[in-house]
Protein backbone atom coordinates (compact mmCIF):
# COMPACT_ATOMS: atom_id res chain seq x y z
CA UNK A 1 0.00 0.00 0.00
CA UNK A 2 2.30 2.76 -1.25
CA UNK A 3 -0.83 4.92 -1.51
CA UNK A 4 -0.15 6.02 2.09
CA UNK A 5 3.28 7.28 1.19
CA UNK A 6 1.82 9.05 -1.84
CA UNK A 7 -0.84 10.71 0.31
CA UNK A 8 1.71 11.89 2.85
CA UNK A 9 3.83 13.41 0.06
CA UNK A 10 0.66 15.03 -1.31
CA UNK A 11 -0.37 16.48 2.05
CA UNK A 12 3.13 17.81 2.71
CA UNK A 13 3.14 19.55 -0.69
CA UNK A 14 -0.37 21.00 -0.25
CA UNK A 15 0.36 22.23 3.29
CA UNK A 16 3.54 23.94 2.12
CA UNK A 17 1.54 25.66 -0.63
CA UNK A 18 -1.18 26.67 1.84
CA UNK A 19 1.34 28.10 4.31
CA UNK A 20 3.11 30.03 1.56
CA UNK A 21 -0.20 31.73 0.78
CA UNK A 22 -1.22 32.21 4.40
CA UNK A 23 -4.28 29.99 3.91
CA UNK A 24 -6.52 29.03 6.81
CA UNK A 25 -7.92 25.90 5.23
CA UNK A 26 -7.75 23.93 2.04
CA UNK A 27 -11.06 23.58 0.26
CA UNK A 28 -10.29 21.23 -2.60
CA UNK A 29 -7.35 19.32 -4.07
CA UNK A 30 -7.28 18.08 -7.64
CA UNK A 31 -4.90 15.31 -8.66
CA UNK A 32 -4.35 13.40 -11.91
CA UNK A 33 -3.83 9.67 -11.64
CA UNK A 34 -2.87 7.70 -14.75
CA UNK A 35 -4.20 4.24 -15.49
CA UNK A 36 -0.61 2.90 -15.61
CA UNK A 37 0.73 4.94 -12.70
CA UNK A 38 0.52 2.07 -10.23
CA UNK A 39 -1.81 4.06 -7.98
CA UNK A 40 -5.31 2.76 -7.24
CA UNK A 41 -8.02 5.40 -6.96
CA UNK A 42 -9.90 3.62 -4.15
CA UNK A 43 -6.74 3.00 -2.12
CA UNK A 44 -5.69 6.60 -2.57
CA UNK A 45 -9.11 7.77 -1.37
CA UNK A 46 -9.06 5.63 1.73
CA UNK A 47 -5.47 6.60 2.54
CA UNK A 48 -6.51 10.25 2.16
CA UNK A 49 -9.48 9.81 4.51
CA UNK A 50 -7.16 8.62 7.26
CA UNK A 51 -4.28 11.00 6.67
CA UNK A 52 -6.13 14.30 6.30
CA UNK A 53 -7.30 14.41 9.93
CA UNK A 54 -5.89 17.32 11.89
CA UNK A 55 -4.24 18.88 8.86
CA UNK A 56 -5.17 21.98 6.86
CA UNK A 57 -6.84 19.51 4.49
CA UNK A 58 -9.18 18.09 7.12
CA UNK A 59 -12.23 19.37 5.22
CA UNK A 60 -10.76 19.41 1.74
CA UNK A 61 -12.35 17.41 -1.03
CA UNK A 62 -9.94 15.22 -3.01
CA UNK A 63 -10.85 15.25 -6.68
CA UNK A 64 -9.16 12.46 -8.64
CA UNK A 65 -9.02 12.90 -12.40
CA UNK A 66 -8.34 9.53 -14.02
CA UNK A 67 -6.14 9.56 -17.12
CA UNK A 68 -6.49 6.64 -19.53
CA UNK A 69 -3.39 4.96 -20.90
CA UNK A 70 -2.62 5.97 -24.47
CA UNK A 71 0.20 4.35 -26.46
CA UNK A 72 1.59 5.94 -29.59
CA UNK A 73 4.35 5.32 -32.10
CA UNK A 74 7.52 7.29 -31.46
CA UNK A 75 8.03 8.07 -35.14
CA UNK A 76 4.65 8.57 -36.76
CA UNK A 77 2.72 9.23 -33.55
CA UNK A 78 -0.15 7.02 -34.67
CA UNK A 79 -2.01 5.36 -31.82
CA UNK A 80 -1.25 1.78 -30.81
CA UNK A 81 -4.41 0.41 -29.16
CA UNK A 82 -4.30 -0.71 -25.54
CA UNK A 83 -3.86 -4.44 -25.22
CA UNK A 84 -2.23 -4.76 -28.64
CA UNK A 85 1.41 -5.66 -29.23
CA UNK A 86 3.28 -2.43 -28.40
CA UNK A 87 4.79 -1.90 -31.82
CA UNK A 88 3.76 0.45 -34.58
CA UNK A 89 2.28 -1.64 -37.42
CA UNK A 90 3.48 0.96 -39.97
CA UNK A 91 7.01 1.88 -38.81
CA UNK A 92 7.70 -1.34 -36.87
CA UNK A 93 9.13 0.72 -34.00
CA UNK A 94 8.30 0.37 -30.29
CA UNK A 95 5.35 2.36 -28.99
CA UNK A 96 5.72 4.78 -26.12
CA UNK A 97 3.26 5.71 -23.40
CA UNK A 98 1.92 9.13 -24.44
CA UNK A 99 -0.36 9.47 -21.40
CA UNK A 100 -1.40 7.44 -18.43
CA UNK A 101 1.47 7.38 -15.91
CA UNK A 102 0.57 10.64 -14.15
CA UNK A 103 0.72 11.03 -10.36
CA UNK A 104 0.29 14.79 -10.38
CA UNK A 105 -0.96 17.50 -8.05
CA UNK A 106 -2.89 19.75 -10.42
CA UNK A 107 -4.53 22.39 -8.36
CA UNK A 108 -5.29 23.47 -4.79
CA UNK A 109 -8.15 25.71 -3.74
CA UNK A 110 -7.61 27.34 -0.39
CA UNK A 111 -9.27 29.86 1.87
CA UNK A 112 -7.06 32.89 2.23
CA UNK A 113 -8.08 35.70 4.60
CA UNK A 114 -8.61 39.14 3.01
CA UNK A 115 -5.61 41.39 3.16
Amino acid sequence: MHEYSIVSALLARVEAEARAHGALRVHRIRVQIGELSGVEKELLESAYELARERTLCEEAELEIVAVEARWACRSCECEVPKGAVLRCPICDRPATLAEGDEIILERVEMEVPDV
Binding site: R13, V108, M110, E111
Partner: peptide, 24 residues
Amino acid sequence: CETCGCGDPDLVPIEVHEAILSEN
Protein backbone atom coordinates in the same frame (compact mmCIF):
# COMPACT_ATOMS: atom_id res chain seq x y z
CA CYS B 1 -15.44 29.67 -5.64
CA GLU B 2 -16.39 28.85 -9.20
CA THR B 3 -16.19 25.08 -8.85
CA CYS B 4 -18.77 24.44 -6.16
CA GLY B 5 -20.50 27.81 -6.03
CA CYS B 6 -20.41 27.87 -2.22
CA GLY B 7 -20.23 31.62 -2.32
CA ASP B 8 -17.10 31.90 -0.25
CA PRO B 9 -15.40 35.09 -1.36
CA ASP B 10 -11.88 34.17 -0.26
CA LEU B 11 -11.20 30.98 -2.20
CA VAL B 12 -7.91 31.14 -4.03
CA PRO B 13 -7.13 28.52 -6.69
CA ILE B 14 -3.45 27.70 -7.16
CA GLU B 15 -2.31 25.75 -10.21
CA VAL B 16 0.55 23.47 -9.15
CA HIS B 17 1.08 20.87 -11.94
CA GLU B 18 3.79 19.00 -10.10
CA ALA B 19 4.59 15.32 -9.62
CA ILE B 20 3.43 14.25 -6.17
CA LEU B 21 6.56 12.14 -5.83
CA SER B 22 8.85 15.01 -6.87
CA GLU B 23 10.80 14.60 -3.62
CA ASN B 24 11.58 10.99 -4.53
